[in-house]
């Protein structure tokens, strides 16, 4: 698992660190970390329904913020549990970061998905995206 939950910050909520060799890997790991707060076994999510994402932001960290918010949006609006299948993050000529992605998932089925807790929002408290010698790393605090 390229993510771990942190015990020592924002105790009423859930904080995690996610990492990857590339930005795309780190974003996908953060998506799984978010989904794993709500569902115990990510392997139980069938990837039948497809959802496409297209996002843009001048700031890399806010691009991650928007990306995680997309997953929360689909969880409430359509009760969809999603995992990332493909992701490309690029920087365009004007310096903006763009993200094109595809996720696969299914509508939450209480009989098959072992639910944990719902995520209300991604907070910007201590929110951080950083390049490291090994690749990329993010710290995220979720409101529960």
């Amino acid at each position: 698992m390229p993510y771990r939950y942190l015990d020592d910050i924002a105790i009423a909520d859930v904080a995690f660190e996610a990492w990857g060799k590339t930005l795309e890997e780190m974003f996908s790991a953060a998506a799984d970390a978010l989904m794993n707060v709500m569902v115990a076994d990510l392997g139980s999510i069938r990837q039948d329904e497809k959802v496409a994402f297209s996002l843009e932001n001048a700031e890399l960290d806010l691009l991650l913020f928007n990306f995680l918010n997309e997953l929360i949006y689909f969880k409430d609006a359509r009760r969809l549990l999603l995992r990332i299948e493909a992701l490309t993050i690029e920087r365009d000529d004007s310096g903006n970061f763009t993200l094109q992605g595809r996720a696969g998932g299914e509508v939450l089925d209480p009989d098959r998905h072992s639910q944990l807790v719902d995520v209300k929002a991604v907070t910007l408290h201590r929110f951080r995206v950083e390049e490291t010698p090994q690749g990329w790393e993010a710290t995220v605090v979720l409101d529960i």
Binding site: D76, V117, D118, K120, I144
Partner: peptide, 18 residues
Amino acid sequence: VRAIDRGYNQIGTLGSGN
């Protein structure tokens, strides 16, 4: 509209956490 999308079918629900 996204806010309405997220909430319009959630009236009468408890939510989670605490």
